[in-house]
Design a protein around this nucleic acid. Structure first.
Lengths: 353, 353
DNA sequence: TTGAAAGCGTTACCAG
DNA sequence: CTGGTAACGCTTTCAA
């Protein structure tokens, strides 16, 4: 049979209540008693039953971190940082209070996102962190808002990381750490424009996603400011993966052979873009410049000449983790904008092609 | 107040027991009754309390997937596959039975690995999947074995994925999907040897890790078979990251300028190796060959000429997920060896240097 | 096919 | 500082 708190109490010759207090360390207990209890715990190899604790205390120690694609280091870095911030706190004791930070992979699917939120709601999760760009479909946005409101009502701390603030959902969301995607898109384009580039292709992310829209808006705004009129033929949408970058870039080069630069929605897409460019026998950056977003650790190896906007992923994730743990939310309605840094890794002067 | 099963029962004019049966779908209920109950559930926006369910049923719907480094796509791909296999099953209904697959990042730390296992034990997890190479420290191995035994006793299904079978721990572990790391290491070395390479550097992973030891063993065995004596100066250990590959390769090139090939412990390390090689003005593969392991999606972009062993990460992860869900374990003591495929992406004939 | 009631293992309040 | 004891919300026999 599984040993219970009562077994420990019996062995230590104290009441269950006392054992509970020792284990949770949230109430004064005589040192000698504590000693006796802990010995009994060790002797019996007792482990608290979290489901019973949660039921009785009406609070769980589960913290869910939702990501769009667990195979993408962009999310891995943020989630890992959050998990460290959450997990690396309490002592390693047999006691309670230890948070269980876990990451849930939605795979970018709205349904799975909702499913996970429901599952976490069932668990009465202590906190939920939503990372990465959100889907903009009104119906889904409404569903998520409603879910978050319910979670929040039930005492779950809701934090957004790398995601724009929810429209009017301010009450349910404790804090929002949003990347300055518009600014990043603008920086990238401005940089290329200053170098003299005029024909710039853009491989955007999936439609209906906030990151996609914001980065593209920044890009187009910069072009507009430079007096370059929006050319829809130079913008292609696709998923945030390598293949999309490859295929879209081939298409862009077909449409506009005079292209001197390609901006990709993120670094993973940029890698595909590079492959397509190389395939055409073009050198980077001598013949054509390629720019990305995110600055994943491997992009420097993939393309030493890649221009990118480095987002402070680790810092943002860690901050989100702390907020989930109860840290004070930033002022201004709990919204903080996290800016990226432009990394121009090589000369990318406009080729004469 | 939070609405409970009793509230639903009252509204549907049935007993709590009936509501439970409808929600779990594991007991016959009259269609009309079910209808009424479900309507009440929807009207009240009721969500099962998983902690209460788990306590009463003595089983949880939590499945934990432990990974060494969540920012490494190697783990992301496996974990994502496992999560899909686990999560994408039940209907999206409001009912129970839905598993909550979550991934836990140990960061390669033995303590955190144990902590997570304890946390999952507390939650009475339905299953636990341990992925990736294990630490070989005897004390830690014993601690993990003991933990797994306890989990297993408590009814948790334990699955190992991309990790060698536990010594004698067969009883606690339901199934083991182990990569053929020795064979992979051998393949890589043999390939290089056949091309005429004789001075081959090796950047190994961290000491005390099974993957590190096995891959290296395969490598050395192949060299030995070719009559090349083991030269400790050509083997360097370090963490599984880019920096390690960079620094170790610089050191190797200093020690042995006549090197014609470098084998890295995995593709991430290989990227660092490539950077170091390029820095010395050497071209790949004309001047020197670089080989890796794992075949991360981006490695082809980083180094089109990289030679690597592709491991079926997705398939292994999906299989592990199915096993965690209750699929039948493979025969042979539950151990299955998953082999990789050699990918020689470019000519890597031994340079004349 | 449905209902009644006895737990499941902890927590937290109230006494002492 | 410690003990007794109602909850906590659901599952699951056992009857009907």
């Amino acid at each position: 049979m599984t040993t219970t708190l009562a077994d420990v109490a019996a062995r230590a010759r104290v009441s269950p209540a006392t054992v509970s207090r020792v284990l949770n360390g949230n109430y004064p207990v005589a040192a000698s008693t504590r000693e006796r209890v802990l010995r009994a715990v060790d002797e019996l190899d007792y482990v608290l039953n979290a489901t019973a604790s949660s039921l009785a205390a009406a609070t769980s120690d589960l913290v869910g971190i939702l990501v769009n694609d667990i195979a993408d280091p962009f999310f891995g870095i943020m989630a890992g940082a959050a998990q460290s911030a959450i997990g690396g706190q309490e002592g390693t004791g047999r006691g309670g209070g230890e948070k269980l930070a876990v990451v849930c992979n939605t795979g970018g699917s709205p349904e799975r996102e909702l499913t996970y939120l429901t599952l976490l709601q069932r668990q009465r999760a202590a906190a939920v962190v939503l990372t990465g760009g959100a889907v903009e479909d009104p119906e889904h946005v409404a569903a998520v808002s409603a879910k978050l409101a319910k979670l929040s009502d039930a005492g779950t701390r809701v934090v957004l990381c790398g995601r724009p603030p929810m429209e009017g959902g301010g009450s349910a969301v404790l804090a929002t750490l949003s990347f300055d995607n518009r600014g990043g898109g603008r920086q990238l384009a401005q940089h290329l424009l200053e170098l003299g580039h005029r024909r710039i292709g853009y491989v955007a992310g999936p439609e209906e996603r906030t990151t996609t829209r914001h980065r593209l808006e920044g890009h187009l705004k910069a072009l507009d400011a430079a007096g370059i009129k929006d050319d829809p033929r130079l913008v292609l949408h696709g998923p945030y993966d390598r293949r999309s970058g490859y295929e879209a870039t081939r298409e862009l080069l077909d449409r506009e052979p005079g292209l001197t630069a390609v901006v990709a929605a993120n670094d993973t897409v940029a890698l595909g873009a590079c492959a397509a460019v190389r395939e055409r026998g073009l050198r980077i950056p001598e013949d054509i410049s390629v720019a990305g977003f995110d600055d994943l650790p491997f992009s420097v190896d993939a393309v030493p000449a890649l221009t990118t906007v480095r987002l402070p992923l680790y810092e943002a994730g860690a901050w989100a983790g702390r907020l989930a743990m109860g840290a004070e939310a930033p002022p201004e309605g709990g919204v903080a904008v996290v800016r990226g840094e432009l990394m121009a890794r090589a000369s990318t002067a406009a080729p004469g092609r």
